[in-house]
Write a protein that binds this DNA or RNA. Structure first.
Lengths: 216, 216
DNA sequence: AAACTTTACGAACGATCGTACTATTAGTTT
DNA sequence: AAACTAATAGTACGATCGTTCGTAAAGTTT
């Protein structure tokens, strides 16, 4: 029994656990202070461990930033993409995707709002590997949204004149604008975003009854 | 003549000039590196002057940040609000406002995109005077946009069911999403935002011929 | 049980941060 | 012309930054 515990809490496993604990904190802090504002010393003291101990796990600050982006991406998938997969493909899933996003941002999973909304603006004008990683994650999300729109159209649940790229852009824009909820400390922004999304989708839906009633 | 030059280039005037030069650089750098990422030493070397010289003009970093926000606000008014005033009140002015914003963001006036879009996300989760100043400026813009919508409705150029607050939110959301143009280095985002704005306004306009044709 | 590897820590590095103090220069006021 | 004041530079401070190095403890392999 003791041996088993030792095995489970062994070297490699324990390393992975603390690694995960570090990244969880790092993502939380970065959503508030930014990925660059996040310092290793600050992160270490938040975890009650040593600066060099945290540092050793990543080898450089850039690697820490890249690992944090990868971690946040996994969180995003688990919180937004996966839940929406429970709805049937098409307009229903597209709408679930929107709702899951609003839920994810407002809960909040990250204290500084959507991790990617924060760091994308931070890095959009400074080249480097971190920016590239953020851009790729962001692009993937937009493409996924676009594909969800395209699928709904293929299934005949959206009218033919619904341009997937354009509609995905607009839905994504509404998610971004919810960042104001933090700046103004006013949660009504979420319902406004929801209303905007719903209005846009109802106008393009062949059967609007699939969607919830307009005002919430 | 020499006396005149001396008078014009005197102590107070010269102080104001360098102050302006500092703020111009500060706003430019902050739009890229963030208002917190902006350091006084970095700013001084960009201006080929001494750190203490720059510092003396403001007394603290926070005051420099606040002055930079005020400066950026003036730039924004000059670049977006004022040009739109040339159009007659109502739907025409509202549309000019949207176009002026797109022009301002894409030119670009600030190298890191819209100054406020950058710093609003940076400060939205950390309380303080700087955040309050940013929030106020941002709120003022949204209110101005909202009033422009309301005015167009009063003039009968938008249908009665156009909710000013909601429509202003949606138009603002499209401006925010243009930040992707920097992240992806893809200017097509501006035309997508333009199309989204135009589509939304045309649907609510009593006389759509006031607006330009749909696709650009 | 011995040899090896990984985790985590503490101390120290050079650089840079915001800020404080002093000095010099150059307009301004009297 | 003398007294005064604002602009700018220089230097130095304590703190913190990312990073390096050496080391003790713990887990793994042989």
């Amino acid at each position: 029994m003791l041996t088993m515990t030792a095995k489970v809490d062994g070297r490699v496993v324990r390393g992975d656990q603390t690694r995960r604990a570090i990244l969880e904190r790092a993502a939380a802090i970065a959503s508030v202070e930014g990925l660059d504002g996040l310092s290793i010393g600050r992160l270490a003291s938040a975890l009650d461990s040593s600066k060099s101990g945290v540092f050793a796990h990543f080898g450089s600050k850039e690697e820490l930033q890249l690992a944090t982006v990868r971690w946040a991406r996994e969180v995003f998938v688990a919180e937004v993409i996966t839940p929406a997969l429970r709805a049937p493909a098409g307009l229903r899933r597209l709408w679930r995707l929107c709702e899951a996003w609003l839920d994810y941002a407002s809960r909040p999973v990250f204290p500084g709002g959507c991790f990617f909304a924060s760091v994308a603006v931070e890095f959009d004008a400074r080249p480097g590997r971190v920016r590239d990683a953020i851009a790729e994650a962001h692009r993937d999300w937009q493409r996924y949204l676009e594909e969800a729109v395209a699928r709904a159209r293929e299934l005949g649940e959206l009218t033919a004149d619904a341009d997937p790229r354009q509609l995905a852009f607009e839905l994504d824009a509404f998610t971004r604008a919810t960042q104001d909820a933090l700046l103004f400390e006013e949660r009504s922004v979420y319902t406004r975003a929801r209303r905007a999304m719903l209005h846009r989708l109802r106008a393009l839906a062949t059967d609007p009854s699939v969607l919830p009633k307009s005002p919430r």
